[in-house]
Amino acid sequence: RVQTNWPLQINLPIGSHTPLWCTASGKLYLASLPPEQLERVLLRLPIQQMARNTLTDLSALRDDLARVREEDMGTDSEEFIDGMVACAVPVRDAQGRLLACLFSHAPVIRCSMEQLLGFVPRLRAAAKELESIVGG
């Protein structure tokens, strides 16, 4: 974990519990599930509005998860916390299963979603390095 030294920070301590349906890593995890399992999980999630852009309509969330699956990258554009953007890329094991998510988040006052997405190639490269370390 790398924390910025800027005075304005979003503090999500290691071990924080965050909702699957509105976080970049959570959506990446959901998109990795087989369709039948995903549907079972979606129907049991306590989906609620967390921030101004939270997707609470299951159809819209399913569409977003299809995009996440296609792009192999999760995003959160003020869906979990108003004023925060995030993106996440997968770290996979040797069988291609999701092992972990490598993510970055920032306050929108300092970094737009477009700017944050500019770091995705570096995140993907770091994820590949992590995969080689764990035998992915």
Results as ranks from 00 to 15, higher is better:
V2D: 05
Q3F: 12
T4A: 15
T4C: 13
N5F: 14
W6P: 06
W6G: 07
L8Q: 12
N11A: 14
L12K: 01
L12F: 12
S16C: 03
H17D: 02
T18C: 14
P19Y: 15
C22A: 14
C22Q: 07
S25V: 08
S25I: 10
K27I: 04
Y29S: 01
L30F: 11
A31G: 09
S32D: 03
L33V: 01
P34G: 12
P34W: 08
P35W: 11
E36A: 06
L38H: 02
E39A: 06
L42P: 04
R44N: 12
L45M: 04
P46C: 07
P46S: 13
Q48V: 08
Q48M: 08
M50Y: 15
M50N: 10
A51F: 03
A51R: 08
R52A: 02
R52T: 11
N53P: 02
L58T: 10
S59H: 10
D63H: 02
D63G: 08
D64H: 07
D64R: 10
L65K: 03
L65N: 00
A66G: 01
A66W: 00
A66D: 08
R67S: 05
E70S: 09
E71D: 04
D72T: 05
D76N: 13
D76L: 11
E79F: 15
I81F: 13
I81P: 03
D82N: 15
G83H: 10
G83F: 13
C87I: 12
A88V: 05
V89D: 07
P90Q: 09
V91A: 08
A94Y: 11
L98W: 02
L99A: 12
L99G: 01
L102R: 00
S104K: 11
H105D: 11
H105M: 14
C111Q: 10
M113P: 02
L116A: 12
G118Y: 09
G118I: 01
G118A: 01
R122A: 15
A125R: 14
A126G: 07
A127I: 06
K128S: 10
L130Q: 09
L130H: 08
I133H: 03
I133E: 06
I133D: 03
I133S: 05
V134R: 06
G135C: 09
G136P: 04
G136R: 07
